Lab assay of single mutants.
Amino acid sequence: TTVKLGDIKVTFDNPEKAKKYAQKLAKIYQLTVHVHGDTIHVK
């Protein structure tokens, strides 16, 4: 599962960890989390 934020891409083996990371980023940057299959976009 890949978390994308602009040019930053972080890949996790564990989808749950990816989701938590995405939510953490979203909170920090006051953005929202969008899940598209294996990719989680923070924008």
Results as ranks from 00 to 15, higher is better:
1 T>C: 14
1 T>V: 12
2 T>V: 12
2 T>D: 04
2 T>M: 07
2 T>W: 07
2 T>E: 05
2 T>C: 10
3 V>F: 03
3 V>D: 03
3 V>W: 01
3 V>A: 01
3 V>C: 09
3 V>G: 03
3 V>K: 02
3 V>E: 02
4 K>W: 15
4 K>H: 12
4 K>I: 15
5 L>G: 02
5 L>A: 04
5 L>S: 03
5 L>I: 15
5 L>N: 03
6 G>M: 07
6 G>W: 12
6 G>E: 04
6 G>A: 05
6 G>D: 04
6 G>R: 07
7 D>K: 15
7 D>M: 14
7 D>P: 13
7 D>L: 14
8 I>E: 03
8 I>D: 02
8 I>C: 14
8 I>K: 10
8 I>T: 07
8 I>N: 06
8 I>W: 15
8 I>Q: 06
8 I>R: 10
8 I>A: 05
9 K>M: 13
9 K>H: 12
9 K>A: 12
9 K>L: 14
9 K>S: 14
9 K>R: 12
9 K>C: 12
9 K>D: 06
9 K>T: 14
10 V>M: 10
10 V>I: 14
10 V>Y: 11
10 V>T: 05
10 V>E: 02
11 T>H: 13
11 T>P: 04
11 T>N: 08
11 T>C: 12
11 T>I: 13
11 T>D: 05
11 T>E: 08
11 T>G: 04
11 T>R: 11
12 F>D: 00
12 F>W: 03
12 F>K: 01
12 F>T: 00
12 F>M: 02
12 F>R: 00
13 D>M: 12
13 D>K: 12
13 D>Q: 11
13 D>C: 12
13 D>Y: 09
13 D>N: 11
14 N>G: 04
14 N>Y: 04
14 N>A: 05
14 N>F: 05
15 P>T: 06
15 P>K: 09
15 P>S: 07
15 P>N: 07
15 P>M: 11
15 P>E: 08
15 P>I: 10
16 E>S: 08
16 E>C: 14
16 E>Q: 09
16 E>H: 09
16 E>G: 07
16 E>P: 01
16 E>D: 10
16 E>Y: 09
17 K>Q: 12
17 K>G: 06
17 K>W: 09
17 K>M: 12
17 K>C: 15
17 K>R: 11
18 A>V: 01
18 A>P: 00
18 A>L: 03
18 A>D: 00
18 A>C: 06
18 A>E: 00
18 A>M: 02
18 A>R: 00
18 A>K: 00
19 K>L: 15
19 K>M: 15
19 K>D: 04
19 K>P: 00
19 K>F: 15
20 K>N: 09
20 K>Y: 08
20 K>F: 08
20 K>L: 11
20 K>P: 00
20 K>I: 10
20 K>S: 08
21 Y>L: 06
21 Y>W: 13
21 Y>D: 00
21 Y>N: 00
21 Y>M: 04
21 Y>S: 00
21 Y>Q: 01
22 A>Y: 03
22 A>T: 01
22 A>C: 09
22 A>E: 00
22 A>R: 01
22 A>W: 04
23 Q>N: 11
23 Q>V: 08
23 Q>C: 15
23 Q>M: 11
23 Q>W: 10
23 Q>K: 10
23 Q>I: 11
24 K>R: 12
24 K>T: 10
24 K>H: 14
24 K>P: 00
24 K>M: 14
24 K>I: 13
24 K>Y: 15
25 L>V: 06
25 L>W: 06
25 L>N: 00
26 A>K: 04
26 A>N: 03
26 A>E: 04
26 A>G: 04
27 K>A: 13
27 K>P: 01
27 K>M: 12
27 K>G: 08
27 K>S: 11
27 K>C: 14
27 K>H: 11
27 K>L: 13
28 I>V: 08
28 I>S: 05
28 I>F: 11
28 I>P: 00
28 I>H: 09
29 Y>V: 03
29 Y>A: 03
29 Y>N: 04
29 Y>M: 05
29 Y>I: 03
29 Y>P: 04
29 Y>S: 03
29 Y>H: 07
30 Q>N: 15
30 Q>M: 09
30 Q>Y: 08
30 Q>W: 07
30 Q>H: 14
31 L>M: 13
31 L>K: 02
31 L>H: 04
31 L>Q: 03
31 L>Y: 07
31 L>E: 01
31 L>D: 01
31 L>S: 05
31 L>A: 09
31 L>P: 00
31 L>W: 05
32 T>Y: 08
32 T>F: 08
32 T>C: 10
32 T>H: 08
32 T>L: 07
33 V>G: 00
33 V>I: 13
33 V>F: 07
33 V>M: 08
34 H>A: 09
34 H>T: 11
34 H>Y: 13
34 H>L: 10
34 H>F: 13
35 V>F: 12
35 V>K: 06
35 V>C: 07
35 V>H: 08
35 V>Q: 09
35 V>A: 06
36 H>V: 15
36 H>A: 11
36 H>Y: 12
36 H>I: 15
36 H>Q: 13
36 H>F: 12
37 G>I: 04
37 G>S: 04
37 G>W: 05
37 G>H: 05
37 G>R: 05
37 G>K: 05
37 G>A: 06
37 G>Q: 05
37 G>L: 06
38 D>C: 12
38 D>I: 07
38 D>Q: 09
38 D>F: 07
38 D>N: 14
38 D>T: 10
38 D>E: 07
38 D>G: 07
39 T>C: 12
39 T>P: 01
39 T>A: 05
39 T>E: 09
40 I>D: 01
40 I>M: 05
40 I>G: 01
40 I>T: 02
40 I>H: 02
41 H>V: 14
41 H>A: 05
41 H>W: 13
41 H>E: 14
41 H>R: 05
41 H>I: 15
41 H>Y: 14
42 V>A: 02
42 V>K: 01
42 V>W: 03
42 V>G: 01
42 V>M: 08
42 V>Y: 03
42 V>P: 01
42 V>C: 04
42 V>N: 02
43 K>S: 13
43 K>P: 03
43 K>A: 12
43 K>W: 13
43 K>F: 14
43 K>G: 15
